[in-house]
Design a protein around this nucleic acid. Structure first.
Lengths: 158, 158
DNA sequence: GTAATTAGTGGGTTGGTACCCACTATAGGC
DNA sequence: GCCTATAGTGGGTACCAACCCACTAATTAC
């Protein structure tokens, strides 16, 4: 999974480097990739963390609501939840009021894992944002947050 | 190819939104996706533009050098070049000094196409960066550029 | 009760990317 | 001339993400 550098380095055309969207896409992909690598070492995927985060932040929820919130296909969420439950990071229980629903909640182990993953994510972030000082990182975060809020939440990854 | 919004909107866990790398990845993916959509309408892919840009910026080159520069597999580049040549956007000619090499150069049509694509890319960028004013976009561009330069150019997309 | 709706799940398909290998043609060392 | 290395190309494989459909179980509407 850890890919060495199969092709030599490159310096890219200014026409592309002048596009913020190009840089955004490239930097974003790299960051995502590096973090995904670390998750893979534990047999986890990005969605796993997204689900844990959503449960920790918003509390127990029915899978359907969780899927809507994360904009993931309910069928795919079922698979993620399955793995997480098998590993003991989440619990699933039939809702007694409406027994079709499965309420998912994060366990203590899940919270602990989330904290660890968050730390790892920040480690990767430090690596990626190394060229920026604390103030600049703050600025970047705020700009990105505003851009993100402005985007119609179509569909993305985790 | 144009995906409607198959799942309802979502508001995401603060734990994730607090990670710049998460935002980077998400915003980048969206931008990339939107631009790719437009390219797809013309039967083009992201690599096509990358190749045109490299040729326009750096002049005619052997495919091998072009592949190294863009960090794409030579075999994959061959396929891209093939399509571009068939459409008349690039020309391929055997290097007379070394007849193994194929020198690729962009045609007038290719330059015209690149200009159009660049305009479209900027249109998408305007859309994505809508929440930011001109000064903020400038700041973002510079921060991203520095981050990008700091990244070991492992491998990415186009 | 019957019909229509909803939640979850299993089993796929599709599209795109990165990657790799075998093969041909040419070049260069000696 | 012979041998090794290199440039390009064709034809794959592997992997992942997004998506979709069919099916079951439970609920609600009438």
């Amino acid at each position: 999974m850890a890919s060495e550098n199969p092709h030599p380095a490159a310096d890219l055309p200014p026409t592309l480097l002048d596009l913020s969207t190009y840089l955004l896409s490239r930097v974003g992909k790299t960051a995502r990739g590096r973090f995904a690598e670390r998750l893979a070492e534990r047999g986890l995927r990005l969605w796993d963390m997204a689900v844990l985060a959503a449960l920790a932040d918003f509390g127990p929820q029915a899978q359907r609501d969780l899927a809507a919130r994360l904009a993931i296909d309910p069928s795919d969420l079922a698979k993620v939840a399955d793995q997480l439950a098998a590993a003991g990071y989440v619990q699933r229980a039939r809702d007694q009021a409406d027994r079709r629903r499965v309420s998912v909640s994060v366990t203590e182990a899940g919270r602990a894992l989330l904290a660890e993953l968050d730390a790892q994510a920040r480690a990767v972030q430090d690596e990626v944002l190394a060229p920026l000082d604390a103030g600049e990182r703050q600025v970047l975060q705020e700009l990105l947050l505003r851009v993100h809020r402005g985007m119609g939440e179509r569909r993305g990854g985790p």
